[in-house]
Design a binder for these strands. Structure first.
Length: 416
RNA sequence: GUGAGUGUAGCUCAGUGGUAGAGUAUCGGUCUGUGGCACCGACUGUCGCGGGUUCGAAUCCCGUCACUCACCCCA
């Protein structure tokens, strides 16, 4: 019989990695709460239409990477490939928007994309992120970038770069794309075949190409930041001022484009040199048209999403919280009952206690104590039972003391 | 979707055509009321799977699957 294995691109998470995940999750909650975000949890699957309408039919994510299936009533459902569309849907559906107050949410959870796995890329992966609705200011863009930056720095990750750009809006981007397409077409013979196609379909993507010829051409193509409308331009200037004010080091990368169609104005990414090929830890931007597009009012939005696996790759081993740990060691079956009673008292008092029921001799039990990294061993032998005592051995110093059985509570309170 | 590399003991790996190995982990003993060391001993395998070449294949060839990395794309 063949062993059943986890599906391609999925992973089990357990110790020692699970400690990193728990640490990261705590940090996320702490930092986001400080910035007045509250958590939102949305379903793991949604109607397929939410993503095709929200993210854009043409994007790779929607066109080739979604886990889409029919349920028993023939409804087309999709495992969420990202969370922004869901959060927007939830806000509209539950009428959460307040005309006079910005909404701030954060989320953590698994996402699903059908991709070939590699370092920092899985089919089931995890993202955390934030969304701010109903605040069109450039300052809040800077704040969102600050939160992301601060969280990473707080985690001790400092091999990072903050890159920002503006991708314009519906007023200026079409003109720019037309201009870009025309200019690229003039240099067409220097471009690779992929990029020749891109000049017609998605000229922005030429900036992504790593081909030498294409890079040369791209360097001389018009930059979006030189072709923004008045509104987008002042927004971008203000963003840069605010980032300086918040002391977030950044640089403008005019080649930065985002993969999801809903972005307008601000786009940003935080990358890390330590990651290898998938070097984006986190990416986001403003999406001022998305909410209307999904059936809501004309309400602005900005947010980012971070890849948790990619953050975890930066975390060194997390020391477990050194909560006091005890193993209860008994000499023979005769002392087992007395030992069980002591174990129960330990648990009731909140002490982290372990007892090995099939233990065998004491030597083995002490070895197990080493394995669970116990701080103390409570030793129960014939003498202890007769005298109503407990021998307590410090596993590190190997010193041993004897206390009265009835003083166990006292001892625990003192040492825990 | 494309390309490259790797699949041998629980783990890390050696073994390039001739009896499947080491380290480590585990278990037992020296040591029957006390663990970290030392020594001695034991267990563990469809050599990923299927086919081919050969007297003989872990080793060479073909196919296949899995994992890893890269392209692509993205977090």
């Amino acid at each position: 019989m063949d062993k059943i294995k986890a599906p391609k691109g999925t992973k089990d998470i357990f110790t020692p990695d699970i400690e990193k995940w728990q640490y990261l999750e705590e940090k996320i909650k702490e930092v986001f709460n400080r910035f007045y975000f509250s958590e939102i949890r949305t379903p793991i699957f949604e109607h397929t239409e939410l993503f095709s309408r929200g993210i854009g039919d043409e994007t790779e994510v929607v066109s080739k990477e979604m886990y889409t299936f029919k349920d028993r009533k023939e409804r087309s459902l999709t495992l969420r490939p990202e969370n922004t569309a869901s959060v927007v849907r939830a806000a509209i559906e539950n009428k959460l928007f307040d005309e006079h107050f910005p909404l701030r949410y954060y989320y953590i959870g698994p996402m699903f994309r059908y991709e070939r796995p590699q370092k920092g890329r899985q089919r089931q992966f995890h993202q955390f992120g934030v969304e701010v609705f109903n605040d069109p200011s450039a300052e809040v863009d800077a704040e969102v970038i600050l939160v992301a930056y601060k969280l990473l720095i707080d985690l001790g990750i400092n091999t990072i770069n903050v890159e920002i750009n503006s991708v314009g809006c519906k007023n200026c981007r079409p003109d720019y794309l037309k201009l870009l397409s025309e200019k690229a077409e003039m240099e067409s013979e220097k471009l690779c075949s992929d990029c020749q196609r891109k000049t017609k379909t998605n000229p922005l993507r030429i900036f992504d190409c790593k081909n030498k010829g294409c890079i040369e051409v791209a360097d001389n193509l018009p930059k979006i930041t030189d072709n923004l409308c008045q509104d987008c331009n002042t927004h971008f200037v203000k963003l840069k001022e605010s980032l300086n004010l918040f002391e977030v080091p950044f640089f403008v990368n005019t080649r930065l484009v985002r993969g999801l169609d809903y972005y307008t104005k601000t786009a940003f990414e935080i990358t890390s040199e330590a990651l290898g090929s998938q070097n984006a830890i986190l990416g986001g931007g403003r999406y001022n048209d998305l909410i209307k597009q999904l059936g809501g009012n004309e309400i602005s939005g900005i947010g980012f999403a971070a890849g948790m696996e990619r953050v975890i790759l930066h975390l060194d081993k997390i020391e477990k919280k050194n909560k006091l740990k005890v193993i209860i060691v008994y000499h023979s079956e005769n002392e087992k009952t007395a030992s069980l009673k002591i174990a129960k008292r330990c648990w009731d008092l909140g002490l982290n206690a372990f007892i090995d029921y099939g233990a065998g001799n004491m030597k083995k039990q002490f070895k197990k104590g080493d394995r669970i990294e116990a701080d103390f061993a409570f030793v129960i032998g014939k003498d202890e039972v007769v005298d109503s005592m407990i021998s307590i051995k410090n596993m590190k110093t190997r010193e041993q003391e004897k206390i009265k059985n009835e003083d166990l509570e006292k001892w625990i309170k003192k040492n825990i």
